[in-house]
Design a protein around this nucleic acid. Structure first.
Lengths: 153, 153
DNA sequence: TTCCTAAATTAGAATGATTATAAATACAAA
DNA sequence: TTTGTATTTATAATCATTCTAATTTAGGAA
C-alpha cells in the first residue's frame, strides 16, 4: 500500500477514533470497522450490507452489533439515517457535507449530488426550527438514467 | 357543517378524484378516503395510523388496502414517502408544496416547516440529476422543543 | 339497465428487517 | 493487574410490510 494512502487511512481512523472518544464511547474494533466502511463507501449501505461486507474481516461480527452501532452513530450525529430505500431497509450515510441523495426506485442504488442549496437549508433550520437537530435525510427518489432506459423497452 | 367548509372539501375531493382518473386508476371509496385523510391531516401518518383512523368510517377497510393504496399514490407522485420515523414505520405526506419536515426522535411527531430553499433544491435536481423524480423526503430529525425540556430534567 | 371483466379489496399467512434478552467478553480507569 | 461496566454475541421475539388466493366492485360495453 502506498504511503500516502496509508497515511490518509490512518489519519481518517484517528479522527474517527477521536470522534468516538469525544462522545464518551469505547473504542472497539467493530465500531471502527463500521465507521470506516461507511466513511470509505459511497454505497449508502444498509445494516445488512455492512454486516455482509465486514464478515470476511470480522467473522464473529454480530448483526445486532451493526444495528447497535448504527443507532449509536446516528445518535451522536456522525452518521445520517436516510430512511429505507427498497426492500433492503434503512440506508446510512457518513458524509456530513451538505448534499442531496438520489435513490432509484428500481435498482435501489443511492448516489450523492452536491448542492449548495442544502447548506443554506441546514443553516436555516438550525437557526429557525427550535429543534436540536441531530441529522437529516435529503433524498429524492425516482428512476435513474439507466433504469429509465431499461423500463422504456 | 358550514357551507364554505363543505365546498372546500367537495372541491378537494373532486380534484383528488381527477388526479386518480388522470393516472388511469379506478375511483374507489377506500382510495378517496385515504387520500382525503392524508390531504386534510398534518400528522404525516403511517399506514397503520391511517388504517386505525379510517376503521370507524370503513369497518371493512383492510390494512393491505392501505399499503397498496399508499404504494400507488407514491408511485404516481401524489404522496411523498418520508421514510420511517420511530417504531411506527414509514410516514407519508400529501403536501406537494416544497417544504421541510421536522421529526422528533423522542415523541416521533413530524411537522412541516416552510422554506423557499426547498423549491430551489427541487428545481435544481429536476434540471440536473437526469433522474425521473417521483418524489422526495426532506426531513431533519432531532429533539423538538418540548422534548428538549422533558429530557433535560 | 344489465353484464362483463380486469382491477381492486379483503382476510389471513408469510416474510424479513429490526429489536429484545441474557450470557460472555473486553475496554479503559485506577 | 484488577475490576466495573460498556459492549458484543447468539438467539429468540416482535411487528411492519408483503404475499396469496378468493371475493368483490368500478366502470365500460351491449
Amino acid at each position: 500500500m502506498d504511503t500516502k494512502l496509508t497515511q490518509t487511512l490512518e489519519n481518517s481512523s484517528l479522527s474517527l477514533a477521536q470522534a468516538l472518544k469525544r462522545a464518551g464511547l469505547r473504542l472497539t474494533p467493530q465500531r471502527l470497522a463500521i465507521l470506516r466502511l461507511l466513511a470509505d463507501s459511497r454505497e449508502h449501505p444498509s445494516a445488512q450490507m455492512i454486516h455482509h461486507a465486514l464478515l470476511a474481516e470480522y467473522p464473529s461480527l454480530s448483526l445486532a452489533t451493526v444495528y447497535n452501532t448504527l443507532e449509536t452513530l446516528v445518535e451522536i450525529g456522525l452518521v445520517n439515517d436516510l430512511g429505507s430505500v427498497g426492500p433492503e431497509g434503512v440506508r446510512y450515510d457518513a458524509d456530513a457535507t451538505p448534499h442531496v441523495n438520489l435513490a432509484c426506485t428500481r435498482c435501489h442504488r443511492v448516489i450523492d449530488l452536491p448542492s449548495h442549496h442544502v447548506r443554506h437549508l441546514e443553516e436555516e433550520i438550525a437557526a429557525q426550527s427550535g429543534y436540536a437537530i441531530k441529522g437529516g435525510r435529503v433524498l429524492y427518489y425516482g428512476l435513474c438514467p439507466e433504469c429509465q432506459k431499461a423500463t422504456s423497452q
